[in-house]
Design a protein around this nucleic acid. Structure first.
Length: 404
DNA sequence: ATTCCACAGGAAACAGTGGTCC
DNA sequence: GGACCACTGTTTCCTGTGGAAT
C-alpha cells in the first residue's frame, strides 16, 4: 500500500499519531501556567509580599492596589504570593481564605458578590442567585466571615470593570467592601484590587480611594529583551531541543514587545506557531510560522466576535457592509430594509447608533466623525474585516442565510 | 454674523424577566 | 400573593456640535 492513496484526513491523522512532535510539554505554553520564578518581577514581588505580610502575624494587612498593562504578570504574582502565604498559615488557628474573582467575567455586581459567596462555601439556599438586594447579599457574606472567624482576602481582578458596574447602578459597594472590617468582629477582610487601567482611580469616590489605595504597586511593561528571555525559557522546557528557530524567537519577542510588552500574547503566539509547524510536519518553527500564527489569531478573534453577536447587531453589520463608507443615516436605512426582508421588528435609530459604537469597540468596523457643514454632523463607518469573512461567518445564522 | 443640518450621545424612564421574602 | 429586588434591552427626550450656506 502506497502512502499516496491515503485520504487527506487519514494522512493528517496518520501524521498526528506517528509523526514527530515539536512540543513536549503543552502546559508550559499556556500563559496561565505559573513558572517557578516569575521573571523580572523581583521588585514588584517584594512590594506585594511586604504589604501582605501582616496576615502571617494575624493582622489585617492594608488593602492593596496593583496596576499594570495586560500581560505584565500582575495576576500571576499576586496569586503566587497569596498561595505561599496561605501555605504558611494553613495549620494555624487563623488560616486565610483566598477568594478570587475577575470582574470582567461577571456581567453584574450581584454576580460578583455571589461568586465570592460560593467560594466562601455558601450554597444556593443560603445565597440565592437572584431576588435579594445587594445589601442583603453583602450582609450575608460578612456574617459568614464573622461566624467562621475567617481571615479573608478578596482578590478582584480587573477592578476597573467593577467600578464601571458600580457607576451604572450607583451602589457604593466598593466603599462598603473597603470598610467591611468596621463591621466585622471576629474575621477580617482584605481587598486586593488588580487593574489594567492606571486612570480608573479618578472615577472613584474619594473615600474609597483613601482606603483602597493604602498600598499601591505598579507593574511596568516588559521590554523586548525581557520578553525574549521569558520566551527562551519556555521554549527550553516546552519544546524539544532546537525546535524553534532563533529568528522566529526574535520575531515573536519583537511582535509582542510592540504590543505594549504583553508577555501573555507572546506566549500564545509561540504556542500557535508551534502547533502550525507541527501540523505541517516541519522540523522547526520558523519566522513564517510566527507570521501565520499572528494572522490566524487575528482572524479567529474576528470570527468569534462576529458569531457571538445577537441578530440585530448582525443585521447592523450587514447594513454597514451594504452601505460601506457611509453615514449612520444610510446604514440605518439599509438596516431597516434588511429587517423587512427577514421580518424582524426594526429598532430605533438611537439604539442602532449605540450598537454601532459597541461594534466599533470590537474592531470589526471603524468609524470617524465627519462634519459636513450644513449637511450636519455624522459618523461614517466602514468594515475593517473583509466582506468575505463577514459573509462566511454570518451565513451560519439560519435567519440570515437567505439574504447573504 | 447667523442659521441650519443630521446626526452623536447622555440621561432617564420603561417593560419584561426571574427571582426572594414575609 | 403582593411588595420588592437586580438586571437587560430598549425607547423617549433632549442638548450639543462644526462648518457650509446665507
Amino acid at each position: 500500500m502506497s502512502v499516496t492513496t491515503l485520504d487527506p484526513i487519514d494522512k493528517l491523522l496518520e501524521a498526528a499519531l506517528t509523526g514527530k512532535s515539536l512540543i513536549k510539554n503543552r502546559t508550559i505554553l499556556h500563559h496561565t501556567y505559573v513558572p517557578n520564578n516569575i521573571y523580572h518581577r523581583d521588585l514588584e514581588q517584594e512590594k506585594v509580599t511586604q504589604s501582605l505580610i501582616p496576615i502571617l502575624k494575624q493582622f489585617r494587612p492594608s488593602n492593596l492596589l496593583v496596576y499594570g498593562k495586560p500581560g505584565t504578570g500582575k495576576t500571576l504574582v499576586v496569586r503566587r504570593i497569596l498561595s505561599k502565604i496561605q501555605e504558611r498559615v494553613e495549620k494555624t488557628n487563623f488560616p486565610i481564605k483566598l477568594v478570587y474573582a475577575n470582574s470582567k467575567e461577571e456581567t453584574t455586581l450581584y454576580g460578583l458578590l455571589i461568586n465570592f459567596g460560593r467560594q466562601l462555601g455558601l450554597n444556593e439556599k443560603e445565597l440565592p442567585p437572584t431576588g435579594l438586594s445587594i445589601s442583603e447579599v453583602f450582609k450575608r457574606l460578612l456574617h459568614t466571615i464573622d461566624q467562621g472567624k475567617q481571615n479573608t482576602v478578596f482578590v478582584i481582578d480587573e477592578i476597573d470593570f467593577l467600578v464601571h458596574l458600580v457607576s451604572k447602578t450607583g451602589n457604593d459597594i466598593l466603599y462598603q467592601l473597603t470598610r467591611a472590617n468596621d463591621r466585622l468582629q471576629n474575621g477580617t477582610l482584605t481587598l486586593v484590587g488588580i487593574s489594567n487601567d492606571l486612570t480608573f482611580k479618578e472615577r472613584l469616590d474619594p473615600r474609597v480611594i483613601s482606603s483602597l489605595g493604602e498600598e499601591e504597586v505598579v507593574f511596568t511593561n516588559y521590554s523586548v529583551d525581557q520578553i525574549h528571555k521569558i520566551l527562551e525559557d519556555r521554549i527550553q522546557s516546552a519544546f524539544i531541543e532546537g525546535a524553534v528557530d532563533k529568528s522566529a524567537l526574535n520575531l515573536c519577542a519583537a511582535m509582542a514587545g510592540r504590543e505594549h510588552g504583553d508577555a501573555r500574547r507572546a506566549i500564545d503566539l509561540l504556542r500557535v506557531a508551534g502547533e502550525i509547524a507541527e501540523r505541517e510536519q516541519q522540523d522547526k518553527v520558523t519566522e513564517e510560522h510566527i507570521r501565520l500564527a499572528s494572522q490566524k489569531m487575528e482572524e479567529d478573534k474576528e470570527t468569534i466576535a462576529l458569531q457571538s453577536y445577537p441578530l440585530h447587531e448582525k443585521l447592523v453589520i450587514l447594513g454597514v457592509m451594504k452601505a460601506s463608507g457611509t453615514s449612520t443615516g444610510e446604514i440605518y436605512t439599509a438596516y431597516k430594509d434588511l429587517c423587512k426582508t427577514v421580518r424582524q421588528k426594526e429598532l430605533t435609530q438611537r439604539r442602532v447608533t449605540q450598537m454601532l459604537s459597541e461594534i466599533e469597540l470590537s474592531g470589526i468596523i471603524s468609524g470617524r466623525i465627519v462634519h459636513q457643514g450644513i449637511h450636519g454632523r455624522t459618523k461614517k463607518f466602514k468594515l475593517t474585516v473583509s466582506p468575505e469573512t463577514v459573509k462566511q461567518t454570518l451565513k451560519k445564522d439560519l435567519t440570515l442565510e437567505d439574504i447573504i
